[in-house]
Design a protein around this nucleic acid. Structure first.
Length: 542
RNA sequence: GAGCCCGUAGCUCAGCCGGUAGAGCACGUGACUUUUAAUCAUGGGGUCGUGGGUUCGAGUCCCACCGGGCUCACCA
């Protein structure tokens, strides 16, 4: 029998089926086989771009595996998560979204850490992007260690393994060449010398390799002279796939995941890693994030949803849920999936606290909150808030809160900050996504008269008129313009046709349906409602 | 050419270690509100892509096939 809470949890984790546990179990077997030591998780970045939704996904998922591993092993085996920035990569092209582009154009080909920061804030463009990456990760509270390729190369930390690559050159080439086209095969070299004269990362064929001296010789593309540089100390960088393999071998990386588009690359790098005498890391290939049409989301295409989009309309936790769910299946990432993930998150959260310990380990919120999900109950769903925001034309929190308080007077932003947070998201969602799609009809002549009459009736109401009084005024006007004799009112006078209310919502809110009008006007404000009427009256054809 | 994912209600999807099919939305009906949103209750609707196999029993495991789609094969 387990004697501690940690031991009990570990026992449960041993049979847990959630995917982070499956991954963690692979790692336990790996560590047992090699007899202990720290387990190193890695995620890597090409720092020429800014952090994006895939960056978040990779760190979030890796963190889930790491946490599962720690629980499984009762934290007896140290773990680290290294976020490795390939900032020594050469600047290939000038990004569109930065200032000082002509200045950058003069530094093409140089390592990013040698390119001046176009924003003028950091020591280099690479440093700038690294800072962006770190503050991005810090926003979410990830626990990680940052690593800079430039620093690692220059410090000599990679030297020993770089020399191994030089020694195993033929083997590395034998692995790489079959994967390349004929014309690329002719020029390919795993080593990319950094030009001592221009500072550029050179993609040149090697003329000679001197394993004993630890150097390579190439012909300078500008001058044609032979140049000899050490492969160590940051004088050479490696091509991507050998670089990945060298890093795994040098640092002893145990786990790294990658997208499905990198399957072949991972295989090649793993073979190179083995050739360097180190076991390649475990990990798995997650499915790509797809747009609405099922195509890969790419920054250059600009399709799909960005992380800023998501975080503008929903919480990081809901995004974590998205990342947790079925990482091996294709996932469409577009606007419509946001509300569902928000509501699913709260549903899982509510369920969590009623579940058995074993069930909890299968619950996404356990993984999202590294074992300690908060206790929260949400009186209404996010979907409802979105409906309400749309129906009530909510452009500030007070309007939405007005409707919420009608439902439950005890609710307030003060005693339910989480709900208030969602209210904010709902309003933004409405404002950005729903409001622009609204189609306001131009009023016809009789409708103009009715609106004018309604405006006058509202103006005549005493200040602070309640919902019932406003509703009565609406009826009075409607009775004159849109009578419905077949449907008498409670006092026997003619009723009011549905058309009147439909007209109001079409003209004032740009939609077919809406909330009870008196209640709406009372909460929305009589002057504000009159402003809506004025706007509607101002619309004309053409 | 290689690899991967998917095929379950009208739509989007969930179905955990195999045990008589579920949710949301949509739709129907009803309650409440003198109309409308919301809310609540309730109902209909599926030969689980096809064909085999394992099994007392298969949406679930195995094999084959069909269909839809993506990714890689220049660079990262």
């Amino acid at each position: 029998m387990p004697t501690t809470a940690a031991a009990a949890l570990s026992d449960l984790a041993a049979t847990a089926r959630a995917w982070p546990f499956e991954e963690a179990k692979k790692l336990v077997a790996r560590v047992e086989k090699r007899g202990g030591g720290t387990v190193l998780f890695e995620t890597g970045y090409g720092p020429s771009g800014l952090p994006h939704i895939g960056t978040f996904g990779e760190v979030a998922r890796t963190t889930m595996v790491r946490h599962a591993f720690r629980v499984l092993t009762e934290d007896r085996i140290p773990t680290r998560l290294l976020c490795f920035s390939d900032d020594m990569d050469g600047l290939r092209k000038v990004p569109d979204n930065v200032p000082n582009r002509e200045m950058l154009a003069g530094h093409l080909g140089k390592p990013l850490t040698e390119v001046p920061d176009p924003f003028g804030e950091h020591a280099s463009f690479g440093a700038h992007n690294n800072a962006r990456l770190r503050s991005f990760l810090d926003t979410f509270g990830f626990e990680y260690e940052f690593a800079s390729a430039t620093e690692y190369y220059r410090s000599g930390r990679f030297d020993q393994t770089l020399l191994k690559v030089l020694a195993a050159y033929d083997e590395v080439m034998a692995i790489m060449l079959p994967s390349l086209r004929a014309e690329r095969q002719a020029s390919y070299s795993p080593f990319l010398p950094i030009s001592p004269t221009t500072g550029a990362v050179l993609q040149v064929p090697l003329v000679e390799r001197k394993v004993e001296a630890g150097t390579v010789v190439y012909r300078d593309p500008d001058t044609g002279v032979l140049v000899e540089v050490p492969v160590t100390g940051g004088h050479c960088k490696l091509q991507w796939k050998p670089d990945w393999a060298m890093r795994w071998a040098a640092l002893g990386v145990d786990y790294e995941m990658a997208g499905k588009d990198l399957i072949d690359s991972v295989k090649l790098s793993a073979r190179i890693c083995s050739a360097l005498g180190a076991p390649p890391p475990d990990g798995f290939n997650y499915e790509l994030f797809l747009d609405e049409n099922g195509e890969k989301i790419s920054k250059s295409k600009g399709n799909g949803l960005t992380i800023d989009d998501w975080l503008a309309y929903a919480s990081p936790e809901s995004l974590s849920l998205f990342m947790f769910q079925k990482p091996r299946s294709g996932k469409k990432l577009f606007f419509d999936v946001i509300p569902r993930n928000v509501d699913d998150y709260y549903t899982f959260l509510a369920k969590y606290h009623e579940e058995s310990p074993a069930q909890r380990l299968e619950n996404p919120v356990w993984h999202i909150h590294t074992g300690t999900p908060p206790t929260l109950d949400l009186p209404v769903s996010f979907a409802l808030l979105l409906n309400l925001a749309s129906a009530s034309n909510a452009d500030d929190r007070a309007v939405l809160w007005g409707f919420l308080k009608r439902q439950d007077a005890a609710l307030s932003p003060e005693n339910h900050p989480e709900l208030d947070r969602l209210v904010g998201y709902a309003i933004r969602y409405f404002h950005d996504r729903v409001a622009p799609t609204k189609r306001f009809r131009v009023p016809e002549e009789t409708e103009r008269q009715a609106l004018a009459a309604l405006d006058a009736a509202l103006a005549a109401l005493p200040a602070g008129a309640d919902a019932e009084a406003i509703q009565a005024a609406v009826y009075e006007v409607g009775r004159a313009v849109f009578p419905d004799t077949a449907k008498p009112g409670p006092d026997g006078r003619p009723g009011v046709s549905l058309a009147w209310f439909a007209t109001l919502y079409q003209l004032l809110l740009g939609q077919e349906r809406g909330p009870r009008f008196g209640s709406f006007a009372a909460i929305y404000g009589v002057p504000e409602t009159r402003a809506l009427i004025a706007t509607a009256l101002a619309r004309t054809d053409g």
